[in-house]
Write a protein that binds this DNA or RNA. Structure first.
Lengths: 242, 242
DNA sequence: GGGCCGTAGTGGTCCGACCACATCCGTGAC
DNA sequence: GTCACGGATGTGGTCGGACCACTACGGCCC
């Protein structure tokens, strides 16, 4: 087959700036940005791509790997390389890395961002949530209160907030919040928080959020969510202060 | 030299799950997450790292490249591989990719997130900004109004909001906003917006934000910033509707 | 003592080979 | 005619080695 990518406007030679691999990354990103590669579309083989850019397969593989971890490309063993759907979930998966590797003051700042977004998302959800979605939220709320297994509580806690974020109707915001609530992040922060007997308080706060959703009261929902995250934020701030 | 990384708790063999490269990525991430690799620290050579994990140098290079684009590692040609400072700016650089490659509804959602964060950041800035920072903001505001070159306006517009975000005192939020205002993102959206003669309106809105900062009025600042971003958001929403 | 320059060590690039897996298509049984 | 099987083909995944480009260090010369 003579499958070929739309060629660059460059007629003679590519400006040899930066490493070869970086150029390859930028080239592919540009192809997508300019719409010459559509979401879901299959790319030429690694070997062909390398040949078209005049670089080795090794370098091209590094470029593809880089774009893979960024959620832009997806490599399927034995099948080919594909452009992802380029939706919020695909591209924001890497956001979890930030939450996982931040520490100290950065963690507090991350919680501050989460408080802002989570409160807004909860307010939006109060206005938009459907009965089905509300039932799902209640399911996790009930399950969360019905067990003492920290692992299970954490899982339902995550799902509780995820459902609310989804009900807010902004996938991008939901994806960011998902990253800010990554499993390891919560495990690192929540663990110490819950160990101080904050279970009862957490339950009260979750109940307040739920009440606001049922009442379809955005302002009450905003306040409840902000307070919920803010509690943890203050606790963490105190932990880092002395 | 016999430089060696702290070994895994695993005594026999690593569970062969996923690709070899992915394992290497996770291993290094884990080393950093567990604090066995400090920010700024130099890693063993690619060859040593590959040997320690029992994989080829090629695969290890892909792993390193992946962590490099994520802002976790930094490779210096001829010198070695180093852990970044792991600060917000390092890790959130990839956020720009999201803004660059999103399209359609995703762009509106992105602007919605920016409106929420930008309004809060501006409100915080109104309460915390120092005279020096305020002078810097005014410098860009003046420069922005003194030229007709779109490129220059865009540059000062970016700097204007960047200074305000910095004055809010949350580096993480500032880094996210920086990504949401990436050059190519604004170029794609603002271009069309400004072409419709929105210059005057933009100037009024910037002036309103500035007044609120000078008056140290957080609520006015929040409203002005929200309105500023909201205008573009509404315009873009209308563009995509028909 | 200071500056120059060679050298060892590092990441960057390339090549070629082989492996593991997915897909497609022809073959055969039913 | 339909379907299941199985091999052939093409793909990404891994490996090993070679060489290049650059940095950093230290000894040499002035």
């Amino acid at each position: 087959m003579d499958e070929t990518l739309p060629s660059e406007t460059d007629p003679v030679a590519a400006p040899p700036k930066g490493t070869v691999t970086q150029r390859a990354i930028d080239s592919i990103k540009a192809l997508i940005g300019e719409g010459r590669l559509e979401p879901g579309q299959r790319l030429p083989t690694e070997r062909d791509l390398a040949a078209q850019l005049g670089i080795s397969r090794s370098s091209m593989r590094e470029a593809i790997r880089a774009l893979t971890v960024l959620g832009v490309l997806e490599a399927r063993h034995g099948s080919g390389i594909y452009v992802t759907q380029l939706e919020a979930g695909d591209l924001l998966e890497t956001f979890g890395v930030v939450a996982d590797l931040s520490r100290g003051p950065g963690l507090v700042e991350l919680l501050e961002v989460r408080r802002i977004l989570e409160s807004t998302a909860t307010a939006l959800a109060a206005a938009r949530i459907t009965p089905d979605q509300l039932a799902e939220v209640e399911k996790h709320l009930t399950a969360m209160n019905a067990t003492d297994d920290p692992e299970e509580i954490l899982a339902h806690d995550l799902a509780f907030h995820r459902e609310i974020a989804a009900a807010a109707g902004n996938e991008t915001m939901a994806a960011i919040l998902e990253g800010l609530s990554s499993r390891t992040f919560r495990a690192r922060v929540w663990r110490g928080y819950q160990e101080e007997g904050a279970f009862a308080r957490t339950r009260r706060e979750h109940a307040a959020i739920h009440r606001a959703l049922v009442a379809r009261d955005p302002e009450a929902a905003r306040a409840a969510a902000a307070s919920h995250v803010g509690e943890v934020e203050e606790w963490l701030r105190a932990q880092l202060a002395p």
